[in-house]
Simulated scan of single mutants.
Amino acid sequence: MPNWNLENRTAVVTGAASGIGRALAVGLAARGCNLALADRNVAGLEETERVIATNRVRISRHALDVADREAVAALPAVVEAAHGGLDLLVNNAGVAVGGTFDDVTEADFEWLFEINFWGVVRMTRAFLPLLRAQPEARIVNLSSLYGLIAPPGQTAYAASKFAVRGFSQALAHELAGSSVGVTVVHPGGVATSVADSARLPAHMTPEEAARGRAAANSLLKLPPERAAAIILAAVERRQGRVLVGTDAKLVALIERLVPVSYWSLIQKLIPRGRAAT
């Protein structure tokens, strides 16, 4: 079967104001795909549109918090009016919370899940009717390296990304044989602002917070543009799962070989002082 041609398709991309979301938007526009860009960061959305503005594709911007169920439910009608339909839904928006389970408040745990997991579920439920109306369509859900393994200090984030993984796999099985495919993405360390914008425990001093962010950022090396290229190539090939980066591929292999004790082995591969905390 030939690759899925994204030219003249329409895609919704959440978290499109920066990072992987912006890079995906740029890559889709280069393929001639029309775009509905969604994010809470309106200024960032405007910059994304400026970067990709071209007469070849139609672009609409949508100020959206994926944790707002009413706003999500209202968005499909707006996108349909602007673009006439939808072929590709990219659930990319996400946030992070640092700290051990004892450190993370229930409010911060729920805040993260509202965006990382329930945002994916709500967007999928809202847009599935439009996707089903197309001869071929696809849902792309961003999980994480931490949807494959669960390091200490990542109880909230890993739980949300494992949930995205499970939801995506079950949904793919339910949609098998239909016109809608599902791709779940596990990026490794991509150089985005996720660590800098993460919520941290209130008891952390500014010095401790700075050290924690620096340690996390030291593991984020893959350029977002490279990550987006890998993801879009997988979408064109209709892959059900894609591992983004050498770190994700290595960790996935280790987890398969030693699914219970993988962390003791992975710790030895992380430079001293850079382990997740």
Score class of each variant (00 low, 15 high):
Val194Trp: 12
Glu207Met: 12
Gly32Gln: 05
Leu28Cys: 05
Asp247Gly: 07
Arg256Lys: 15
Ala71Phe: 01
Ala159Lys: 10
Thr192Trp: 05
Asp68Arg: 00
His186Arg: 12
Ala107Thr: 05
Trp118Asn: 06
Gly177His: 13
Ala229Leu: 07
Asn141Ala: 07
Arg274Trp: 11
Ala53Gln: 10
Ala202Arg: 11
Ala158Gln: 05
Ala252Asp: 13
Ser261Asn: 14
Ile115Asp: 00
Leu112Phe: 06
Gly15Ser: 07
Gly119Asn: 02
Ser218Asp: 11
Leu253Arg: 14
Gly21Trp: 01
Thr277Pro: 12
Lys249Trp: 09
Glu47Pro: 04
Ala198Val: 07
Val185His: 05
Ala17Phe: 09
Glu174Ile: 13
Phe167Ala: 10
His203Phe: 14
Ala248Asp: 06
Gly273Lys: 04
Glu47Gly: 08
Leu130Trp: 06
Asp68Gln: 01
Ala133Phe: 02
Ala202Pro: 06
Val12His: 02
Ala158Thr: 14
Val72Asp: 01
Phe113Val: 10
Asn91Tyr: 03
Val184His: 03
Asn41Trp: 03
Val184Arg: 05
Arg61Leu: 15
Thr10Glu: 07
Ile20Pro: 02
Thr246Tyr: 08
Gly44Ala: 02
Leu142Asp: 06
Pro76Arg: 03
Phe101Val: 14
Val51Glu: 05
Arg165Met: 13
Lys221Gly: 09
Thr192Leu: 09
Ser218Asn: 11
Leu171Phe: 13
Leu243Cys: 04
Lys161Gln: 09
Lys268Thr: 15
Gly212Trp: 15
Glu49His: 13
Val57Asn: 04
Asp39Ser: 10
Val51Phe: 12
Ala29Trp: 00
Val258Gly: 06
His173Tyr: 12
Gly189Gln: 06
Arg122Lys: 02
Thr246Met: 08
Ala234Tyr: 11
Gly99Cys: 11
Gly189Leu: 03
Val90Glu: 01
Val242Met: 03
Ile139Pro: 02
Ala126His: 01
Ala16Val: 11
Asp68Gly: 00
Val97Trp: 00
Leu37Trp: 03
Val260Gln: 14
Leu89Phe: 03
Asp65Met: 01
Asn41Leu: 03
Val182Gln: 07
Asn3Arg: 15
Gly32Lys: 04
Val260Leu: 15
Leu200Pro: 09
His186Glu: 08
Arg199Lys: 12
Asp102Glu: 15
Ser160Arg: 09
Glu106Gln: 12
Met123Ser: 07
Ser144Gln: 08
Trp4Gly: 09
Asn5Ser: 10
Ala233Val: 02
Arg9Gln: 15
Leu64Asp: 00
Gly94Trp: 07
Glu49Trp: 09
His186Trp: 07
Val90His: 01
Phe109Met: 08
Leu88Trp: 00
Ser143Arg: 04
Asp108Lys: 04
Arg256Asn: 13
Glu236Gln: 15
His186Tyr: 14
Arg211Ala: 15
Glu255Met: 13
Val78Ala: 13
Thr10Tyr: 11
Leu257Asn: 04
Pro2Ala: 11
His186Phe: 11
Gly189Pro: 01
Gln154Trp: 08
Glu7Met: 14
Ser218Thr: 06
Ala216Gly: 09
Asn41Thr: 03
Arg274Asp: 08
Arg132Trp: 09
Asn55Cys: 05
Glu225Asp: 14
Val51Asn: 05
Val164Asn: 00
Ala252Pro: 08
Gly212Met: 10
Ala16Met: 09
Ala36Leu: 05
Ala126Ser: 06
Val235Pro: 01
Ile59Phe: 01
Val180Asp: 01
Glu236Met: 15
